[in-house]
């Protein structure tokens, strides 16, 4: 319990630090937002009046606190380029990225657990030997390049989906999920390859333990030993890794959304940085970073719940 409290304290401090860092980063960007907002209507007097009404003349920490207060209440400011509240701009995008990320995560788990075990089970067979090398190569494939390959293979050659033609949820849920399957695959294959490698080496190092010898002496076959004794113990580091990997997945989705033209948070973030629409960019950065920090916190708690040994150290 004390561990959880301590971790929660660190979590809140980290969240504040992360939001302050992001706020300050967008604060020191050279240039004045009023120039952009006023456009051709720019006069020094109007700019001054606008600056006053936006509160830009106040001290930076006062502004941070008022921004944070408003952010927590759901008021995220006004977008420069869309001239509407940021939460309106974000509407619908959060859901798309969330679905894409969860789907990728499920795929990583579904692919890596059986494959990791299979690579150990058939270690001395051609499948195991080739599999390890293929896995090593897949780890090095960047998700966005894999996305381009999948677009070519399934989009252009096999015509399973139309690249760039995203189908929104409102139109058809199954077809939307069908379109998101390919970006999810692009995100999850390299991640799954890393998980497979981790699981495989965890099982192999677990096989050297004494209890494995005992299990063999009871007449178990190698596969029985792996299935009933080793797998559960080898799973521990993998569970932590999988819990932490949701953060990485959200980050890769930023770029893979670009490949498949998925209208999610990532595409909006890249567009808002290119267009210097900083209120939107700041909001998305803080949201993604918070999800990452919270996920890592939950992973920590999860690890110590399932493995009491961590609590002692």
């Amino acid at each position: 319990m004390q561990y959880v409290l301590k971790k929660t304290g660190v979590l809140i401090a980290t969240l504040l630090l992360v939001s302050l860092f992001a706020f300050l980063a967008f604060e020191i960007i050279p240039g004045d937002p009023t120039t952009m907002l006023l456009g051709s209507d720019y006069t020094p007097e109007r700019a001054e009046a606008l600056r006053e009404s936006m509160g830009l003349n106040r001290n930076v920490f006062v502004r941070y606190l008022s921004w944070l207060g408003a952010f927590l209440c759901g008021d995220m400011g006004t977008s420069y380029s869309y001239a509407m509240p940021v939460h309106e701009v974000l509407r619908g995008k959060v859901g798309v990225t969330a679905v894409l990320s969860v789907m990728s995560w499920v795929l990583v788990t579904a692919l890596s657990l059986p494959l990791g075990v299979a690579l150990v089970r058939y270690q001395s067979k051609p499948f195991g030997k080739i599999g390890v090398s293929v896995n090593q190569i897949l780890m090095a494939v960047p998700p966005f390049f894999l996305g381009i390959l999948l677009t070519y293979l399934f989009g252009l050659l096999l015509k399973v989906f139309t690249p760039g033609k995203f189908i929104p949820f409102e139109q058809s849920v199954p077809r939307c999920l069908g379109y998101l399957f390919f970006p999810a695959l692009a995100i999850s294959i390299p991640k799954a390859a890393k998980t497979v490698k981790l699981l495989r080496s965890a099982i192999l190092s677990e096989m050297k333990r004494d209890y494995v010898l005992t299990a063999y002496s009871h007449g178990n076959s190698r596969w029985m030993v792996i299935k009933h004794h080793v797998f559960r113990n080898a799973l521990l580091p993998v569970v932590t890794y999988l819990a932490m990997s949701l953060a990485d997945i959200v980050a890769s989705s930023i770029i893979v959304e670009q490949v498949f033209v998925v209208p999610g948070l990532g595409r909006l973030l890249v567009a808002s940085i290119s267009n210097r629409d900083y209120p939107v960019a700041l909001c998305i950065v803080v949201m993604i970073a918070s999800v990452v920090v919270v996920m890592n916190y939950l992973a920590d708690i999860l690890t110590q719940t399932i493995d009491p040994r961590v609590r002692l150290s």
């Binding site: 980290t14 992360v18 860092f21 930023i254 770029i255 993604i288 970073a289 990452v292 920090v293």
Partner: peptide, 8 residues
């Protein structure tokens, strides 16, 4: 800082 994904 390392808690941030590096791409972000």
């Amino acid at each position: 800082i390392t808690a941030f994904p590096s791409l972000l």
